[in-house]
């Protein structure tokens, strides 16, 4: 058996265009929700049952400099190799696809304890539909993968995302990090051994998002 699929999100290349955020809504027929401007480009403010993918915007001043930084973190489910959220599932409410490794929440997740699932996730990804009680998150576009298509977010990404066999993506991540380290010593691929959706950052992961790293 192959080692399944992986996605690489190289934040050093991400321009924060949010093509991925909207492409995810488009493919998954998710509604646009009513939001408010709260003094940031980031909207919607967080994941919800209607939002599986959001670009998180983080800004500040570079250490010892007047120069600002602006980091874009195209957040999504990491599709863990050994997903902690499955501990909340007894009867295949949460399943792992054999071929790809994608973690999928079925409609039956309405029967499992949401808080257990959410609190078990180191990346704070699971959300619940308040009406149907079904749990939701990114499916890695398992339906598209099965049809030989790239996940919608990957297809739409102009600069930062790669999709492929896990071995190839791991190799790519390693090479890219080595390259980036020449300029940014803090460059790393976050939790690469534990997750299928691997984020490359060039600075402390906490500066991007509280739950960027497990």
């Amino acid at each position: 058996m192959s080692d399944g699929k992986s996605i690489l999100v190289d934040t050093s290349r991400c321009t924060g265009c949010r093509g991925c955020q909207v492409a995810c809504k488009q493919w998954n027929d998710l509604p646009g929700t009513r939001t408010k401007q709260a003094g940031t480009y980031q909207n919607p403010p967080d994941f919800s049952c209607d939002t599986y993918k959001i670009v998180r915007f983080a800004e500040g001043k570079k250490e010892g400099s007047r120069e600002p930084y602006w980091y874009f973190f195209a957040d999504m489910c990491r599709h863990c190799m050994n997903p902690p959220c499955m501990s909340a599932s007894d009867k295949d409410e949460i399943v792992q696809d054999e071929a790809t490794g994608a973690i999928v929440y079925t409609k039956e997740t309405k029967n499992i304890d949401f808080e257990t699932a959410r609190s078990s996730c180191p990346y704070d990804v699971p959300r619940q539909n308040p009406d149907s009680k079904v749990l939701s998150k990114c499916t890695m576009c398992i339906d598209r993968m099965r049809s030989g298509l790239k996940p919608a977010c990957v297809l739409s990404c102009p600069t930062a995302m790669e999709f492929g066999e896990r071995e190839a993506i791991l190799k790519l991540a390693e090479e890219r990090v080595a390259e980036l380290k020449k300029i940014w010593p803090k460059a790393k691929a976050i939790d690469a051994d534990e997750v299928r959706v691997i984020f490359i950052v060039t600075d402390d992961p906490k500066k991007y998002h509280t739950h960027a790293q497990a």
């Binding site: 949010r18 809504k25 488009q26 646009g32 929700t33 939001t35 401007q37 919607p44």
Partner: peptide, 24 residues
Amino acid sequence: TEHWCSGAITRWQSWLTEAMPQVY
């Protein structure tokens, strides 16, 4: 990015107004 010009087309689209809802 999320709107186009005066928003005459994009403000009618919920995915875009969700991302950039109000004047700032």
